[in-house]
Each structure stands twice: as structure tokens, then as C-alpha cells.
Amino acid sequence: MALRMVIDKATGFAAKFYQRGVASQLTQTGLRYEDIVNENEREVEEALALADPDVVTGRTRRLKRAIDLNFKRKNMLDYAPDVDQETFKLEFYDDVMKIKARDQEYALLNAHNK
């Protein structure tokens, strides 16, 4: 029990440290955490197909802007220093998790067909 608490505390510290590092890199490019999710995964592709068109358009525009900034070797903070980018805002990742849970449930229910 005590070992578990120590491990959880250490993991939480490492996770917060990593999250701060990722957030600073995403802020420089103008991306959100959801934007760097691999869209070639089946679950993500399905969630994007079901998502609101405004969400998909915003994601596409952020990705294009990040590519442009990278090509120009610029930083998003040079153009908009006071913008709140909501780096860890979740718009479609909840749907990805629901699709994964649905697929796991389907696999468990059909395990007898093997």
C-alpha cells in the first residue's frame, strides 16, 4: 500500500513535468494536444468523421498554421503573444475513448466465436 502511494506520487510528478514540456512546445506551434493524435488510427478516424465540422476545420487550420510556422522557422508567440490556446481542451478525444470501449465490449461479447 505504501509502495503504491510512492509510485503514484512519483508518476504524478513525472506526468506533470512531461505535460508542462509538451504544453510549451504546443504553445510555440499553436497546436492543441488533440491535434497531434494520429488520425490514421481507426478509432480516431471514426471520431473525426462523427465530429462537428467546425472541430475538424479548426484542427485542419491549426495543423496548416503549424506547418507554415515551422517552414518559416517562426513561433506562434511572435504573432499572438496573449492568445489563450486551450492546449489541453478535448473536443473529440472523448469520442475516441467511447469507440475504443465499444470495440473492446464487442470483442468480449464475441469471444466465443473463435
Rank of each mutant, 00 (worst) to 15 (best):
V83Q: 14
A15R: 14
Y33A: 07
L77S: 02
V6R: 11
E39T: 09
I36L: 05
I36Y: 02
V44A: 01
N113A: 13
L109R: 12
T87I: 15
Y106R: 14
K89V: 14
A51K: 03
L63A: 04
M1C: 07
A47L: 02
E105D: 12
T57E: 15
R20P: 00
M1D: 09
L109V: 04
T87Y: 08
K74M: 12
P53I: 04
V22I: 15
F92W: 10
I99R: 03
V55T: 10
L3A: 11
L109I: 05
K9W: 11
P81M: 06
L109C: 05
M97Q: 15
E86Q: 15
L48G: 00
Y79K: 03
Y106C: 06
Y33R: 07
G30R: 01
L48Y: 02
N40L: 04
R73M: 11
D8S: 08
L69T: 01
K100T: 05
A23R: 05
V55A: 04
T27I: 13
I99W: 01
I7P: 00
D8H: 06
D84F: 12
M76E: 10
A14M: 13
K89W: 11
T27M: 11
D95G: 05
Y18D: 12
K16H: 13
G30W: 00
V96P: 02
A111P: 00
N40F: 04
A107N: 02
T11F: 08
T57M: 13
D35W: 03
Y93L: 08
D8I: 03
K64R: 15
R65N: 11
Q28A: 14
Y93R: 03
A80V: 12
A111E: 12
R20F: 13
G12P: 01
D103A: 10
Y106F: 15
A14F: 12
K9G: 03
Y18P: 00
E43Y: 06
R73C: 05
A107Q: 09
M76R: 06
A47T: 02
D35I: 03
A111L: 10
E45H: 03
A80L: 15
E39F: 03
V6S: 10
N40Q: 08
L26E: 01
A23V: 07
Y106Q: 08
L109Y: 08
T11S: 10
Q85D: 08
A66K: 02
Q19S: 14
R65W: 05
L63R: 03
D35K: 02
E45I: 00
A49N: 06
L69R: 02
T29R: 04
T60G: 11
R102F: 14
G21D: 08
M5Y: 07
